[in-house]
């Protein structure tokens, strides 16, 4: 009995939209739409700045800039360290004549 009642309710609910009227968009819809279109029609520059100012885009952009800067700094540091080492060692060796003399050097002297 109870089950039958549930089934009846279910079928009635399924039919509840039969003959339903169309919901209307309300008055001044076009006026509000025009206002929205004007808002959307702002200049490309405004749209671009708006896009850049979005938190997700701004944070990603900042991270990319920081990453690129870090890579450049690390590379410069590495090259300057290795470059300085070579130059310093060479200068030191020249200054104190640290080259290992070979038999060929003796030949050259003669």
């Amino acid at each position: 009995m109870k089950k039958e009642h549930h089934q009846e309710e279910t079928e009635a609910a399924l039919r509840s939209l039969d003959g339903a009227g169309r919901a209307g968009a309300g008055e001044f819809f076009f006026t509000r739409l025009q206002a929205r279109l004007q808002q959307k029609g702002s200049s490309a520059w405004e749209r671009a700045t708006g896009w850049i100012a979005r938190p997700s885009i701004a944070i990603i952009g900042l991270c990319i800039i920081l990453l690129l800067n870090s890579i450049i700094v690390i590379r410069q540091f590495e090259s300057s360290v290795s470059g300085t080492d070579q130059a310093t060692l060479q200068a030191f060796a020249d200054e104190y004549r640290l080259q290992v003399p070979t038999v060929y050097d003796d030949d050259k002297a003669e």
Partner: peptide, 19 residues
Amino acid sequence: HHPGVQLDNKERAAVLFKA
């Protein structure tokens, strides 16, 4: 509650929309 649904069907329609 859909504004186009007849008054005596409002509650049933609300349940149907939920489903």
